[in-house]
Design a protein around this nucleic acid. Structure first.
Length: 842
RNA sequence: GCCCGGAUGGCGUAAUUGGUAAACGCGGUGGACUCAAAAUCCAUUGCUCGAAAGGGCGUGCGGGUUCGAGUCCCGCUCCGGGCACCA
């Protein structure tokens, strides 16, 4: 397809110029108001894919738009350069992960530049850069000193084939290892954790004030999973001083507790198991240990609700009666207290379990007459509960808690689903945890001046699944920084989510070499005004980054009071590659570079902006190629409209005819009435477009902003043909270019320079303003309905009164026909838009 | 199972406070330019009845509120996403 202009030449020219001019490099002392726009930094996987294009186009639009609005916009970029793919590639090909990664970074950076996205490249951050790793490790140490990083035992995913711990994402839904295919088991191992649960309440409460998509907030809320209830201590019968602590959200149901259950991993299991029950209990403990959590929890139904009687009994504190104590794999050690009081009448799992084991069921809530099911979890009045009878559930909960506290056998309690963040990874390509194990001193952190701890290059990356660092003697064997005795280095590296939990802070001051970042710089730029990224990070990354911001404030790196990193979040939709019928040859897998080389980056950007609402998913389909062509055609039309004398309409006129047209206008400065009208109409169209595009930019409605620009581009030749003045036509074209500048920056820059001469730069221009008065139409089309159906349209004055409107409406012959020339029984007048005449039909 | 989100022409979609459904684009059809094609431009394009004028129908389905519903309420269906023995 022949382009109207040299797309590649122009795009390269401006990409180079933006870099050289440093237009988007901002410093702290910039007098303009500050603004921080950030796209989630990418994992460098090679040349950009369409998801990147979408993300960075949205971000770039915002950066350029805010800049034109007069802000000093901080627009940094970097690379999330630690991670598994590089290590796996290294295992497969023998190329060192650093070499592999840096090649991928170069390719991705090249793509971003080709897209026309502008950044303050001086601030580029890479997670694997020793200068970044050093501060990562310093932060780890500060968290450790503050008690926010600790070593603990965790039940983790263990792959017997790979002999390593797996992240949850590496375990397939059938409970097997994604790499070896082995059945993954649970194993108790010593691992490093961050105490994110210490912030559970704050992470939940602070969500409220964030301008984030509601669904992301809901996901985080559910993830944190706050539940309010009570802890109850159940004394073990015949074992003075020993009690099982359980957590319940329904202390009102205490009278219905007919048994209690321990998680198989509960520390008291051994002690409370009677000899005659031992073999059955141990078999169950063994069985549940072998199963992955996924297997243990996903099968559902009665089979999985297997339990075993321990032989012990616990005493129900409100009735004083003993009830049997079981273990069952549906009770999880990692939630609550790892033990529950079971109330089969009001809990579905307990009901099922009780049925299976022949345990008694006592209803404590009145069930509706029509209900003939099992457990009743709905509302109702308390029954069979002595001093709670007749109360509502809510009242009874309060009363029960008061009773428990009064008798010192329980207390109000809040539990969270959120677990502490396991950060240990048995991997090479990550940031080493800066810790040494000394036989006499125990856990010792590496002194700051010895940081960063770097992994050696000469490791054997073999597909054993074991941490390559563990078998590197030179790395493992070290001396204790405290006592200088022989010591062993920690060989685990940090989860890469650690790197991405504070990079946005480093961006404020990536030059600091005596601290992670300067606090004043953070104060000036943070929080991020607009964060943009994929919905897939709704929980993990965004939760971790929030936690880090709070924790870093508490350990003194981040200004006090800065508790949230991202004030406003936008999550873009994903690109879907349709159903199975998609074929590789149909172009759905075509890399962005294929478009850069043909229609150009601007056309591809425009497509991503135009195809639909930014927040919604996009199907990359057979039609996509044609839509991109359409965007490319529109840009050609703009080019001709702005730069050729005939306005891109060969059929309309020759060059000569056009010139005489202009000459005619100049000879007659006092325009004739229709000409003035066309001029006026065009001017209004321009102001409407400015208003619409500005508003749409602010409300993330880029697809309609593009439509508004297309409308303006269509209007210009029409009104020019109708005789609009040359000045207003020129102004209209210039305005169109300004509006397009954030969306299709290369074309806008080139056209602007050609129209305004060397040195003119559209992106340094002010964003156009509109005159609200010009948005108000003086003549509007009024709809006349009869019984709610449109029967006629009348053009009226915008100031038309109700009486006039009704008179016009009744004056229409079509309306009279529809009325059957009878008088309406009811008239609803909403001038100047609508009149509805209602006539009773019999 | 629970919690979110969605469903509008042949297709992507628009309709911001209940007030002209389909803006903008893709595709289609007809035409202009051309020796011809491409490119470009113009016109047309929800479905349906009708020669036309004009009429009827139309926002996943069934009800409701209203002078008036894509928009609000109740009850469903289907699709997408999140969580999923969390006590």
């Amino acid at each position: 397809m022949a382009k109207a202009y040299d797309v590649q030449g122009i795009e390269r020219k401006w990409q180079r110029r933006w870099l050289e001019n440093g237009d988007y490099e901002v410093d702290r002392d910039d007098p303009r108001p500050h603004c921080y726009v950030l796209c989630m930094y990418p994992y460098p996987s090679g040349p950009a894919h369409q998801g990147h294009v979408r993300n960075y186009t949205f971000g770039d639009l915002m950066v350029r738009y805010r800049t034109m609005k007069g802000y000093a916009v901080l627009s940094p970029i970097g690379f999330d350069s630690f991670g598994l793919p590089a290590e796996n590639a290294a295992i497969a090909t023998g190329v060192h992960p650093r070499v592999f990664t840096e090649q991928r970074i170069d390719e991705l950076r090249e793509s971003l530049v080709s897209l026309g996205a502008v950044y303050d490249w001086r601030r580029e951050v890479r997670s694997h850069d020793p200068a970044y790793m050093r501060w990562n490790q310093v932060i780890f140490k500060r968290l450790f000193d503050a008690g926010l990083a600790y070593r603990g035992t965790a039940s983790v995913n263990w792959c017997p084939g790979c002999k390593t711990v797996l992240a949850n994402e590496q375990v397939l839904s059938d409970g097997t290892c994604e790499r070896s295919g082995d059945q993954v088991a649970k194993r108790s191992l010593e691992q490093w954790f961050f105490r994110i649960t210490a912030y559970a309440e704050e992470l939940l409460a602070d969500l409220e004030a964030l301008e984030w998509p509601e669904r992301v907030k809901v996901m985080q809320k559910n993830w944190i999973g706050r539940s309010v209830g009570a802890e109850v201590d159940l004394p073990v019968e015949g074992r003075p001083g020993i009690a099982i602590r359980v957590f319940t959200t329904r202390p009102d149901t205490l009278f219905g507790m007919t048994y209690a259950v321990l998680a198989p991993e509960h520390p008291m299991v051994k002690e409370l198991t009677a000899p005659e029950c031992r073999s059955e209990v141990e078999a169950l403990v063994e069985r549940s240990r072998k199963l992955s959590e996924i297997e243990r929890t996903s099968s559902g139904g009665g089979l999985a609700k297997r339990g075993a009687f321990t032989g012990s009994r616990v005493v129900n504190p409100v009735t004083g009666k003993p009830v049997p104590l079981y273990i069952a794999d549906y009770v999880l050690m990692s939630y609550g207290t790892g033990a529950i009081m079971a109330v089969p009448a009001e809990d579905e799992r307990d009901w099922e379990f009780a049925q299976l084991h022949g345990l008694p069921i006592v209803r404590t809530v009145e069930v509706p007459e029509s209900f003939d099911g099992g457990a009743w979890t709905g509302d109702g009045l308390k029954i069979n509960s002595e001093w709670l009878d007749g109360l509502s559930i809510q009242e009874a909960i309060e009363r029960a808690i008061a009773w428990l506290e009064g008798h010192e056998v329980g207390r109000r309690a809040v539990k969270y689903r959120l677990r502490d963040w396991l950060v240990s990874r048995q991997r090479y390509w990550g940031c080493p945890i800066p810790v040494v194990y000394c036989e006499s001193c125990g856990i010792v952190t590496v002194p700051d001046e010895q940081l960063p701890v770097l992994a050696p290059d000469d490791v054997q990356l073999l597909p054993t699944g074991e941490s390559p660092l563990a078998s590197h003697d030179g790395f493992v064997n070290t001396t204790c920084p405290k006592c200088s005795q022989r010591a062993r280095r920690e060989t685990d590296t940090m989860d890469t989510f650690v790197d991405s939990s504070w990079y946005f802070l480093r961006f404020c001051d990536p030059w600091s070499d005596n601290k992670p970042f300067d606090m004043d710089a953070v104060k000036q730029w943070m929080p991020v005004d607009q964060y943009i990224g994929g919905i897939e990070h709704a929980i993990l990354h965004l939760m971790y980054a929030r936690f880090f911001t709070k924790a870093l404030a508490d350990v003194g790196f981040v200004p006090e009071g800065m508790r949230e990193p991202f004030s406003r979040l936008f999550t873009q939709g994903m690109i879907r590659l349709g159903g199975t019928k998609m074929s590789k040859s149909k172009g759905n897998l075509v890399a962005p570079s294929a478009y850069f080389d043909t229609v150009g980056a601007d056309a591809l950007r425009l497509y991503h902006l135009f195809v639909g609402p930014p927040a919604e998913d996009v199907d990359w389909s057979e039609q996509t190629g044609e839509l991109i062509e359409g965007c490319s055609r529109f840009l050609d039309r703009v080019w001709r409209l702005a730069l050729s004398d005939d306005g891109g309409s060969p059929a309309e006129s020759s060059r000569a005819a056009n010139l005489s047209d202009r000459a005619g206008l100049q000879q007659d400065p006092v325009s004739t009435a229709p000409q003035r009208s066309a001029t006026e109409q065009l001017r209004r169209a321009v102001h409407r477009a400015v208003a619409k595009v500005s508003e749409d930019f602010d409300r993330w409605s880029y697809n309609t902003a593009v439509a508004a620009c297309m409308e303006l581009a269509n209007a210009i030749p029409r009104w020019r043909r109708a005789g609009a003045s040359i000045e207003v036509v020129d102004e209209a074209i210039d305005t169109l270019i300004l509006l397009l500048a954030p969306m299709t920056p290369h074309l806008a820059a080139e056209v602007w320079e050609r129209r305004h001469g060397q040195g003119a730069a559209v992106h340094r221009e002010k964003w156009p303003v509109f005159d609200p008065q010009l948005l108000v139409e003086d003549r509007v089309t009024m709809v006349v309905q009869v019984n709610g159906k449109v029967r006629d349209r009348v053009e009226v004055d915008a100031s038309t009164s109700e009486e006039e409107a009704v008179r016009y409406a009744l004056g229409s012959p079509k309306v009279q026909d529809a009325l059957g020339h009878a008088a309406p029984t009811r008239v609803v007048a909403r001038p100047p838009n609508l009149v509805n005449l209602v006539i009773a039909r019999d």
